[in-house]
Design a protein around this nucleic acid. Sequence first.
DNA 1: AAGCGTCAAGCATCC
DNA 2: GGATGCTTGACGCTT
Length: 324
Amino acid sequence: MTKTLFRLGYVAMSVNLKNSSPSQTITYKRFSQFADEEAAIQKLETVAKSNIQNCLRLLKHNKANDIHFFRLSSRLIPLATHDALKGWDYISPIKEDLEELGEFAAKHEIRMDFHPDHFVVLNTTKKEVMKTSVKTLDYHHKLLTHMKLKPIHRCVLHLGGKYENKESSLERFISNWALVPARIQEMIMLENDDKTYTLHDILYVCEKLNIPAVFDLHHHMANHEREDWISEWGRVIQTWSASPLPVKMHISSPKSDKQFRAHANMIDPEMFLTFVKKVNGSTPQIDCMIEAKQKDQALFQLVDDLKANSEVEMVDEASFYLKS
DNA sequence: AAGCGTCAAGCATCC
DNA sequence: GGATGCTTGACGCTT
């Protein structure tokens, strides 16, 4: 059995690096209060530039800590997809910054992707929502291409809303998929959610449309037909067979029994190791996205816990094997 | 500096 | 069909 390389990543922002938010923003309300629209747009561009420069700082922080896996904030450019800013060329003012960011990631082999907000809903019944969803995905596509990153399998989405009838809404994802441009389609990965669409549902769609499946263990514990997931793991791996990228999954721990769906500050290392042991050897590499309130600090804490375990063999500060 | 109300998106739920 | 909650990080006003 080949060993699996596990790499850890975290989401969008750091609790260690001060004043490094990649998600500073101007709300539409504030934007519309500017007397001078040109000044307002200039303000948006200043914020966008700062967000991307902060991303670069985060990437340097990642490099210093051997972190090769990172989720970018989807809020890099405030109001980029807002209706009131149609025609605004939001790329030109930050073109060089995006290139610099992408070059740094490429040079230091940092896998980057996005998780667009939950109002990107591809199984919607409304034409308008479909339009803004594709528009938002196109914004992500633009960011990726200007970072000179191949936009393949870079955006994790959920299947969408239930709309009273889960089965027909699931099928609507499949019929709406035909309305999505091919270059947007190839960016997408699909993740099981904690309320409606289970791993089983996601696999059905992923296999049908050839989309990689991102398994979220925490969501699965909150929402499943059967608690057992390992019997489906082979299918999850299989959805990645045509991808240039390694298998990716999401790891988080429940905040409490009462607030089970909410994310805890840290990752429960025992739960994580139990998972790791089950999937070890199934594929050469699994990138584990740590989704915890304490962001990079949760990753560092988990690494400390792993180092204390004699079954774990660290490769660097954020990657490891299980000893055979 | 800290705390609280506000903002933004779409869906779910309730009336 | 309209109001409210969900969720999250950030803004901005008040103390």
